[in-house]
Amino acid sequence: MKKFVIVIASFGFIFLTSCKVQKEGIVIMTDHSYKATLLANNKIGIGSPDGLLWHKGKLYFADEGGVALESWNRTEGLKKLADASVGFLSPEDLVIDAQDNIFFTDDDAGGLWEYTADGKLREVAGKDKGLISTEGIAMAKDGSLLVGDGEQHEVFRVTRDGNVSEFLGKEAGITKPESMVFDDQGNLYIADNEDNVLYLLDANRKLHRIIDRNEAFSPETIYYSKGSLYITDSHNCKLYVYTPGEELKTIAAFGGQLKNVQGVTVDDQGNILLSVQSDLKHKVGNIIEISKEETQVAKK
């Protein structure tokens, strides 16, 4: 009997150890005209980025896991622009103006931060001015910044000299303005990933609930490019595209260690770039590129 048990235990041990035990990740393309590639991972030096933005041939990261602001392209590699030593804690989302000044939010340290084109970092406005937990950020036409606050449940307007005023108050009913972006008509899209609603504030300052599907939709980051709004959803692990007047379309679904899709941006060639926080605590992140299959590009 003892031999029998040993044989069975050995079989069990071999069975368990022969399997490839590791956490894997997948991308399921629901729109088959796209393909997915891994653009970058921790090997290039990033931590676990949240917001990301394509600007003048470079990809900029609000690296929440690595607590840094970084830029990257294939030729120059990763460049750390600023790190935790200057006081920010969890860089969340970012915008860049035409003069290459970078503005970013921080949901732990709060405030609005600026990294100037000449390499200086400053806090434009901090917690003392009511910016407690800053999330989404968008740049208005007049150059002021709109900043969403997840704890105040408001959207503030912040001028370059640090004046803070209310842009959308609590009465607007937006619980967590996680991400914001202007379209080319001057309408402002606002993603609330706590109430799971995508809002649109039109030019007449009227707020519309564009997508409101509760459980099945939770907009994390939104990015507007060439008439379409790209939306990541970290709760439902999806990437969508929304075109006004059309249904919300799923481009891809994510699973395993790639499920936590966060930031989204589009590069000059129209490729969609996504940041994935695989393990924020252990600073594991990936950047995925979703691009059209070559046959589709040729057809175009």
Partner: peptide, 20 residues
């Protein structure tokens, strides 16, 4: 990690080291 066969009927990319 092994998705159900019905899931594997779709166009899926799987993370394998440094590539999908």
């Amino acid at each position: 990690f092994l998705p159900r066969p019905e899931i594997q009927s779709q166009k899926i990319y799987r993370l394998d080291g440094d590539q999908l």
